[in-house]
Design a protein around this nucleic acid. Sequence first.
DNA 1: CATGTTTTGATAGTAGCTGTCATTTCGGAG
DNA 2: CTCCGAAATGACAGCTACTATCAAAACATG
Lengths: 199, 199
Amino acid sequence: MTTEVPAGLRERKKARTRAAIRDAAMRLFTEQGYAATTVEQIAEAAEVSPSTFFRYFPTKEDVVLTDDVDPAVVAAIRAQPPETPVVDAVLAGMRQVFEQLTEEEWAGERRRQRLFDEVPDLRARQLQQTVAAVDLLAGVIAERLGRPADADEARTLAGALVGVTLTFLRPGEAVSFHLEDFDRVRRALISLRDHLAPL
Amino acid sequence: MTTEVPAGLRERKKARTRAAIRDAAMRLFTEQGYAATTVEQIAEAAEVSPSTFFRYFPTKEDVVLTDDVDPAVVAAIRAQPPETPVVDAVLAGMRQVFEQLTEEEWAGERRRQRLFDEVPDLRARQLQQTVAAVDLLAGVIAERLGRPADADEARTLAGALVGVTLTFLRPGEAVSFHLEDFDRVRRALISLRDHLAPL
DNA sequence: CATGTTTTGATAGTAGCTGTCATTTCGGAG
DNA sequence: CTCCGAAATGACAGCTACTATCAAAACATG
């Protein structure tokens, strides 16, 4: 996402090492599969010691689990004009971020997604991140509604939105997230509203 | 839940062994913590070999992850009169199942929940189960709506309902799920509906 | 009781992850 | 440029979850 070049030589080398490890790992994962790739192999391919690997990534899983889009989405939502209704602001924010992704970033995302679909452990972890995203989202929503951050109202809306989004991000689903998909989400939300009418 | 006594001696012994392992594990977990308890210790406490442990539970995590309530909820929803609106049927189904739990079962649930709150790995796995529950729920909802099982409409509603429910089952929340909590969920859904109105 | 099947235990091995400590690499002060 | 303190690295040892294999024991059935 936002690629800021850090100052010190040390910092830059660290960033390079980190990238080298991740690139090597992703390459090996796609070549031979996740389970079949050992940390030792990754370390060797990245020309570092296994110790160093674990200094950069606490677990083998974490190599795949770097996610910068969620915070970006939150920022984009926050940037929407305050008179926009909450749900529309959320949809617009998501849409903006996804539209700005470069083709290369999309490719990386797709590779990651494929790994998630294949490796149950990774999938479990990703879900955890998703749930964390609910908190983030609930925070922004609460802001917009002028409620305290832990208001039931905000948390419910966030939970429902993420729940619905999850529904469209299932394994096997093409995660393209272009205009047509947003229409689909919108339609889904409308039908949801109608089902809630009898309450 | 439904405790059916199996016929053969072999089956009964297997059930007993399984229970012994789980009981020993849960006891040790609460005594010394999850991470600090090794499979070897559990096996010893249950008077089986480590090999046997892994025959009964594929991973250490699975000892904690036995869930019989989700299917029960689905069955209860299915048992609601067909003229009841979907959302009400779901709420009623959940409520019935939770009301039928014995105090002992509640205690076990609470212990499990505490472990989930403490151990991130377990939490991740539990989430995965939750997502699987969305599928189950979507199935029943589709039935009621007379739609195909993979209809967006059903999946959306299921996703939203589970998402909202998740919101009220967070770490730190008291998972009592009695009448007052159901009112809370209902109110949350009503506010959700109102926020979806502008669409 | 004799048979075949299922369950179990022992053993050995792999790999993820942690901790420690000496060595190297880097940034800044003189 | 040089020296010094701090940070990064690598080598090593160790623990534990998990797998694979195979022989022994427990059970079911005739």
